[in-house]
Amino acid sequence: MQRFVLPFRFFASRMVLLGVASVLVFSCMTLLPGDPAEVLLGVDAQPDTLAALHHTLGLDQPFFIRYLHWLGNLFKGDFGQSYSYNVAVWQLLSERLQLSAPLAGLALVLSICLGVPLGVLTATQRGKPIDIVVMGAFQFTKAIPDFWLAMILTGFFALTLHWFPAGGFSGWEQGAGAVLWSLLLPAIALALPQAAVLGRYTRSAAIAVLEEPFVLTARAHGLSERSVLTRHVLPRSLPPVLAVISLQIPLLLSGTIIVENVFNLKGTGALLLEAVSQRDLPVVQGCVLLIVTLVIFEKGFFEWLEIKLSPWVSYHQSRQRA
């Protein structure tokens, strides 16, 4: 029974959360001053043209009806039509995700590949020169704003050395290699500050584990230092590190707009900003819903992973739930 109830509770609570988010976005966008028809038609618009557009967009209907209408369509899998682009919201989102998903993924991979090993390294070398140098570098990259880093990277690698394009997205039809090439610099700009955060957390987690008695036991058993680290220290340090990673994913999905701008990349962040500034409600709803859904399920996944990795957490949780 419990095996069945738990997933149900998991999904139900998250659906409620999604519903709350959608009501909030809908009412905020309605309360904000501004009329999408006025934005679309500009300062020369005649009153009758405005009225015609209001009718076409369904804006002449009351708030409540419009929300129910939107919700009803959503259950049919229809995210609605963008006011300004005049195409399905889902189409706009999928176009932008072709850029944003690989960018966020690449940045995440880079930040993990850089942050975690360096964190473990500095933990084992605590107080030694390499620890001081790497920690200093972490402090520096954490402190610099990512858009400034982005500007420096373009200035050096694109405009001076010409190794990378100065901006723009190649598009998938050019092949995965071209996509990687056009996204590498922005991904580095996004990843470096995140790697610094991740590295610091990994370091403290690893230091705490290194002081545990079982590490001493493992060493006493004659295990090599490398296998002590990879088999015993790293797995035990992972839960807090995973928690940090799960916080970084939403940031990378939605908070990349300034870096995107420097590289002239049109991702979901840019779409959301544009939609808000044009009062394109269906697109705002679509973006927010997508981001909230991803975050909710990503968090769920990481909670599950944490439980799998740390039996002691699972024990406490099942006791609480019982």
Partner: peptide, 18 residues
């Protein structure tokens, strides 16, 4: 026709020959 939202990105694209 290529579209640029950011003046710096526009300047870079000119300098880069894009």
């Amino acid at each position: 026709f290529r579209f640029f939202a950011d003046p710096l990105a526009a300047a870079n694209a000119l300098l880069d020959g894009q």
